[in-house]
């Protein structure tokens, strides 16, 4: 299976160097080939497992509880202003 590595990297919001594109491309191709062994199994009608232990929605009363102070959360942010995380302008 050939992977369009540039497209996948874009989806993952990850910049890759030219060298990384080549090495990862080769290594991932080898790994994907290995994974093709799963196709030997007929899984028609088999339910997929996303959790090994049955999990259910957990409900609780909608009560007001204390949360982490805003200042503490913002104190470790790379950039902040007036109580918000600050990022480059996204609307022209």
């Amino acid at each position: 299976m050939k992977m369009d590595i540039e497209k996948v990297a874009r989806l993952a919001r990850l910049e890759l160097s030219e060298e990384e594109k080549v090495t990862f491309g080769n290594q991932l191709e080898q790994i994907l080939t290995y994974m093709e062994q799963l196709n030997r199994l007929d899984t028609t009608g088999v339910e997929p497992t996303s959790h090994a232990i049955p999990v259910h929605n957990v409900f609780r009363e909608d009560e007001v509880k204390s949360s982490f102070p805003q200042e503490e959360a913002l104190a470790i942010a790379p950039d902040e202003e007036r109580g918000h995380f600050k990022v480059p302008r996204i609307i022209e």
Partner: peptide
């Protein structure tokens, strides 16, 4: 990269869903 690929449109069924089914087995 690998995780993004196996979840991406067109490959999800072949990889992620298939693996989750074999996980059941």
């Amino acid at each position: 990269i690998l995780g993004t690929y196996v979840l991406s449109a067109g490959y999800y069924e072949a990889y992620y869903r298939k693996a989750s089914q074999v996980r059941t087995l």
